[in-house]
Simulated scan of single mutants.
Amino acid sequence: MYLVDFCREDGSAEVQLGQTRVMGIVTAKFVQPYRDRPNEGTLAIYPEFSPMADPSFEAGRSGESAVELGRIIDRGLRESRAVDTESLCIVAGKLVWAIRIDILILDNGGNLVDAANIAALAALMTFRRPECSLGGEDGQEVIIHPPEVIIPESWH
Rank of each mutant, 00 (worst) to 15 (best):
residue 32 Q to R: 13
residue 7 C to K: 14
residue 79 E to Y: 09
residue 120 A to H: 01
residue 52 M to I: 11
residue 69 L to C: 02
residue 63 G to K: 03
residue 116 A to Y: 12
residue 24 G to A: 04
residue 24 G to T: 02
residue 51 P to A: 02
residue 14 E to N: 08
residue 18 G to M: 00
residue 63 G to P: 01
residue 40 E to D: 13
residue 71 R to L: 03
residue 73 I to C: 01
residue 84 D to F: 00
residue 13 A to D: 04
residue 99 I to N: 03
residue 75 R to H: 14
residue 102 D to N: 13
residue 47 P to V: 05
residue 42 T to R: 12
residue 90 I to D: 02
residue 8 R to S: 07
residue 15 V to F: 14
residue 103 I to G: 03
residue 150 I to K: 09
residue 145 H to M: 11
residue 6 F to S: 11
residue 147 P to A: 02
residue 68 E to K: 09
residue 80 S to E: 12
residue 74 D to Y: 15
residue 74 D to I: 04
residue 42 T to A: 12
residue 19 Q to I: 10
residue 103 I to R: 01
residue 152 P to V: 02
residue 21 R to H: 01
residue 58 E to S: 11
residue 100 R to V: 15
residue 21 R to F: 04
residue 87 S to T: 09
residue 98 A to L: 14
residue 96 V to I: 00
residue 27 T to W: 01
residue 58 E to M: 08
residue 21 R to D: 04
residue 21 R to S: 09
residue 38 P to G: 05
residue 59 A to F: 13
residue 112 L to A: 07
residue 131 E to N: 03
residue 34 Y to W: 15
residue 69 L to R: 08
residue 144 I to Q: 00
residue 20 T to H: 01
residue 25 I to M: 05
residue 143 I to W: 03
residue 67 V to I: 15
residue 38 P to D: 13
residue 131 E to F: 09
residue 132 C to H: 07
residue 99 I to Q: 01
residue 65 S to G: 00
residue 50 S to Q: 04
residue 46 Y to T: 11
residue 81 R to E: 13
residue 135 G to M: 08
residue 34 Y to D: 12
residue 136 G to N: 13
